[in-house]
Simulated assay, not measured.
Amino acid sequence: MKWLDLIHRWTGGLVGLVLGMMGLTGAILVHEDAWLGWTLPHAGDALNRDPAALAAVTTRLIGDGHGVQGIVYASDGFGLHQLRLSGGAGAYADQAGAIVTRWGSQWERPELWLFDLHHHLFTGDVGETVIGIAGLCAVLFVVTGTILWWRTRRTFAFRLWPKRMSRPAIVMQHRDLGIVMAPLLLLSAVTGTMMIFKPVAAIVMAPFSSPAQARAAMAPPKLSGGALAAHPDWAAMLATAHARFPDADFRTLTLPRKPGEPISFRMRRAAEWLPNGRTMLWFDAATGRLLAARDALALPRGAQVFNTAYPLHAAKVGGLAYRLVMTCSGLAMAMLGSFAVWSFWFRRPRLKPRRAV
């Protein structure tokens, strides 16, 4: 138990601040649609699901010379289209196609830099790897913390805040708050880590289907076509997609980055939890001909389990009640991580000097 305690404390002292940041930013991002709805005009507009209307606004947005690379379409919870422009720029547009606001970089929009901080620590793939390692440490903390708590279970006393800012009081609050929040912390850590590290995802998917089969089913198909037409027939493409999946909402449009790549649409079928869905269609950029389609509900069971990781992690299911639950999880992680660093580095017990014999 002594070695287990040392591992728990030292690892917490080293990565606690990263976990605290992840918890706090995650608790804020869970409510992103709500606070954007309060600050942006038309963000609360009802969703227009008419494919013809969507085709008209797509034509307007892409044809206005904004250099659009893709569109995240409005949803039930957020009534604005988000335009992805070159160079990290972007814009929000209402469902009639009028630009509501635009930005030149992510630093002009708090929801964008908060997302980048939470997922990448502002350092791209390197930061994502650090976040993944911290997530694995969080799983380790839950397991080792539960084992260590069991020895002192008779002294359990739930407190949201330490009785005093002394090391013993912080340790007691950390121990007892941690055991109460352990299931939610484990859910947050496992779902977050499996989106970063393939081996973790494979372990979670393995009981349901072969991880290799699931990865193959989710891999983008190898397709080729012509160069992007000057005026693509969006109405025909959207009508084809709607006829193929009549119960699905259009979620994203991605334009080809180089000649030969297809135009891709993501749709969300009614039974999908993932907010942007995994139902995909690919069209020839030159002719608008449908090249391939993938039904997310027909994917192997393991792939469907993987697709639940993000909505569970980001509270995109379950409504306000589950958002509040995951807010508590994020705030608990922020408190546990930051107090672990504080008590380890700044409230360590002083060793008494030995008396000379």
Rank of each mutant, 00 (worst) to 15 (best):
R9C: 10
T11F: 13
G12L: 13
G16R: 03
T25I: 12
G26D: 09
W35V: 11
L40T: 03
A43L: 06
G44E: 14
D45L: 02
R49Y: 01
R49G: 01
A52H: 04
V57T: 15
R60L: 10
I62H: 07
G65H: 08
G67M: 05
G70S: 06
D76K: 14
G90T: 09
G90S: 07
A98E: 15
V100A: 02
V100I: 15
E108V: 08
E108R: 14
P110C: 10
E111C: 00
H120W: 08
D125P: 08
E128F: 05
T129K: 12
A138P: 00
A138T: 07
V139F: 07
T146P: 00
T152L: 10
T155Q: 11
F156L: 02
F158D: 00
F158R: 03
R159K: 14
W161S: 04
R164D: 07
R167D: 02
P168W: 06
A169P: 05
I170Q: 02
V171N: 09
G178R: 09
A189Y: 06
F197N: 10
K198Y: 07
V200L: 06
A201Q: 11
A214L: 13
A216C: 04
P220M: 14
G225S: 07
A227N: 09
A230G: 02
M237L: 13
A248E: 07
R251G: 00
T254M: 11
R257F: 08
P259R: 04
G260A: 03
G260E: 14
F265M: 14
R266C: 07
M267C: 03
R269K: 15
A271P: 01
E272Q: 03
P275Y: 11
P275W: 12
M280H: 12
T287R: 12
L291R: 06
A292H: 14
G302L: 08
G302P: 13
F306M: 09
F306K: 02
A309N: 08
L312G: 09
K316V: 02
V317Q: 09
Y322G: 01
L324K: 08
L324G: 00
S329A: 15
S338A: 15
R354W: 04
R355Y: 02
A356F: 13
V357N: 09
